[in-house]
Design a protein around this nucleic acid. Structure first.
Lengths: 111, 111
DNA sequence: TAGCGACATAGCAAACACGCTATGTCGACA
DNA sequence: TGTCGACATAGCGTGTTTGCTATGTCGCTA
C-alpha cells in the first residue's frame, strides 16, 4: 500500500503565497468545484469523493486544459497548502484544506 | 482647483482582479501602512493624512524602490479599486478603500 | 514664461506564469 | 516481464509582471 498525503502546513503561514495561488480564475474554479465533489464530477468507483476528493483527470477535463497544465494548477494549490493531495494506487485525489482556507479568509479580515 | 478622485468601483466586482492586486508583498505592505498614515509616514504639511492619505513620494521612499516602480504598484491597487487616489495641486494622495477591502474579505469567506 | 518639484508615462530587460508536446515513473494486470 | 492507465516532470514558446532609466505633464512660483 502506498498512500501519501501532501500538505505544506500553511495554516498560519505566508499570506502572500496563498494569495498568489488564489489569484487565478482557473484555480478559484477548482476550489469551488471541490466544495462538492459528488455534484461537480462524475462518479468515482475507486476512491471516496467525500473523504479523498476528486481525481486528477476529472479536474483536468473540467478545466478544459491539457493534463500537465491541469496538474500544475493543482500543484500550485497543494504547494500553497490550500488543497490536500492523496495518492493511492494509480490515482491522485485532491480535496480542499478547509483549515487553511478558513485561516486565509480570517487573515483577509485584517488586510 | 483641480481635485480628481479615482476609483474603479470594485465594491462587488471581480474577486480575481482584487486577488491579483493583493498577491504582492510590497502591495500588502502599502495597504498595511495606509491603515495609519500618521504613524507610518512623515508629517505632511500639505494635505490631511487622515482624510486624503499619504502622498506618493512617501510611499515610494518607504517601499525602497524607484519612483516609477512605486507609482505603478499604487496604480495596480487603484485599478483594482482597493485604494483611492486623490490628486490635488502638485501632489497625489492615496488612501485605503475600506468598502472594497471589506467586500473582498467578505467574498473570501466563501472561497 | 522659465524653471522646479511631484508625479505619470514610455520603453526596455530580466524573471515569472501559463499553455502545450514529449517523456518519465509507478502500480496493476495479462 | 511487458504493457497500459494515471499522473508527474522536462522543456519550450509566449504573455505578463517587475524593476530600472529617460522623458513627458502639470501646477506652482520667481
Amino acid at each position: 500500500m502506498t498512500v501519501t498525503e501532501t500538505t505544506t502546513a500553511e495554516t498560519e503561514g505566508d499570506l502572500e503565497v496563498a494569495l498568489k495561488a488564489l489569484a487565478s480564475d482557473k484555480r478559484l474554479k477548482i476550489l469551488d468545484w471541490l466544495k462538492d465533489v459528488e455534484a461537480n464530477f462524475p462518479p468515482q468507483e475507486h476512491g471516496d469523493p467525500v473523504t479523498e476528493g476528486a481525481c486528477n483527470l476529472f479536474v483536468v477535463e473540467k478545466l478544459g486544459v491539457s493534463q500537465p497544465t491541469g496538474s500544475r494548477h493543482l500543484k500550485v494549490l497543494v504547494d500553497a497548502g490550500l488543497v490536500i493531495a492523496t495518492r493511492r494506487k494509480g490515482w491522485t485525489y485532491y480535496r480542499r484544506n478547509e483549515d487553511a482556507l478558513t485561516a486565509v479568509a480570517e487573515q483577509m479580515r485584517e488586510i
